[in-house]
């Protein structure tokens, strides 16, 4: 990862991310339960997410207009800006009992998301650790319902896996990954 540099007006992404802090927090360090942390997110994944929102593959009313805007401003500068920020894990501490239950249930995820859950670019799988639990659960439910990237063959295996897991257990898994550092 690139060395963390202090954010500032000299960064070519500085003004291009002005809009994001209203929901994602200053420099992408989200403190809320349902909006993801962008600080420290690898550029390749952030860029793909923006392209997916803009194309409507990831339906999200909040993100679609802004994703298109980011493509117009220059997604590479935006992605580089967040990638250079120090990762800021969610401050939301899930229920410890849920975390413990989730630890076992989360084992199948490591096949793609890496042994520590920190993501594997070769598999296109992002870092799950330190994201807010509410956000992680929402995304799992969207995969399960096949509304996030519907029909994407690269996600068939993950969706089959998630469909087999009952919702309450998904919440436990979300708690687990949210609690990892």
């Amino acid at each position: 990862a690139p060395a963390a540099t202090p954010a500032g007006p000299r960064d070519p992404g500085y003004t291009k991310v002005f809009a994001c802090s209203a929901c994602h927090g200053r420099d992408g360090a989200s403190r809320s339960d349902t909006v993801p942390v962008l600080a420290g997110m690898p550029a390749w994944y952030l860029k793909k997410a923006i392209e997916d929102y803009a194309a409507g593959r990831r339906p999200a009313a909040e993100m679609e207009p802004y994703a298109k805007m980011v493509l117009g401003l220059g997604v590479d500068d935006v992605a580089a800006y967040f990638a250079a920020r120090p990762k800021a894990p969610t401050p939301i501490a899930p229920d410890p009992a849920a975390v413990e239950r989730g630890g076992t249930a989360a084992q199948p995820c490591v096949a793609c998301h890496g042994a520590e859950g920190k993501g594997d670019r070769s598999k296109g799988a992002p870092d799950l650790t330190g994201q807010p639990p509410g956000y992680l659960l929402n995304q799992m439910l969207l995969f399960k319902a096949d509304t996030r990237s519907p029909g994407d063959p690269a996600l068939t295996a993950q969706k089959a896996l998630l469909k087999a897991i009952p919702d309450p257990q998904l919440a436990d898994i979300a708690a687990w990954w949210a609690s990892r550092r």
Partner: peptide, 25 residues
């Protein structure tokens, strides 16, 4: 201009998230 497809508890949670972030901003 885009609207959420309807009203939902998920949007309610995003509204809380927005408030929390923008007050900080």
């Amino acid at each position: 201009q885009k609207l959420t497809p309807g009203q939902s508890a998920a949007s309610g949670r995003n509204a809380l998230a927005w408030a929390r972030s923008i007050w900080d901003d």
